[in-house]
């Protein structure tokens, strides 16, 4: 069964960009446009997700907030990559405290994204 990746980003273009890359590599991609919607989907999901890609900057609930709540849920926890843009340096400590496991800077090139995603899913490397 395909591994399930949850992409949380308010920008539809970015979601599509990630979706195309990840689906192209055979992953099952799910999307949410903010932390609140994402939490709902996590709670309603019949199977837990295998990896989260979380945008930092989102309306309603940002990436930090989402991760904080995610990590308090009683579910099978999976790695989360936080994604920031180059304009704002990410607050690493805040990201780690919230529950991120890694971060990448947008725009992420497809090979780098797939490389890290494969590794974080334990699927071996790509390069």
């Amino acid at each position: 069964m395909a591994q399930r990746i949850f992409v949380i980003d308010d920008a539809a273009t970015v979601r599509l960009y990630h979706r195309q890359i990840l689906e192209g590599a055979g992953f099952e991609v799910h999307e949410a446009i903010n932390g609140i919607e994402a939490l709902e989907k996590v709670l309603l999901a019949s199977t837990p997700f295998d990896l989260y890609l979380v945008d930092v900057n989102m309306p309603k609930q940002d990436g930090y907030g989402f991760l904080r709540e995610l990590r308090q849920l009683d579910i099978r926890q999976a790695p989360a990559i936080m994604i920031s843009t180059e304009a704002q340096a990410i607050d690493r400590v805040k990201a780690w405290e919230a529950g991120a496991n890694f971060y990448l800077v947008k725009p992420i090139k497809p090979d780098a994204l797939l490389g890290y995603v494969h590794l974080l899913l334990g699927a071996g490397g790509t390069a």
């Binding site: 904080r68 709540e69 308090q72 926890q77 991120a100 590794l119 974080l120 334990g122 699927a123």
Partner: peptide
């Protein structure tokens, strides 16, 4: 780096599990 952070924050078990899941993935690789 994550595991070296202070442990006072909420959701520590969740974060530990997520870290372990990440490390497990690395081991699998």
């Amino acid at each position: 780096e994550i595991l070296a952070l202070s442990e006072s924050t909420d959701g520590l078990p969740g974060r530990l599990q997520a870290c372990a899941a990440t490390i497990a993935a690395c081991l699998a690789n």
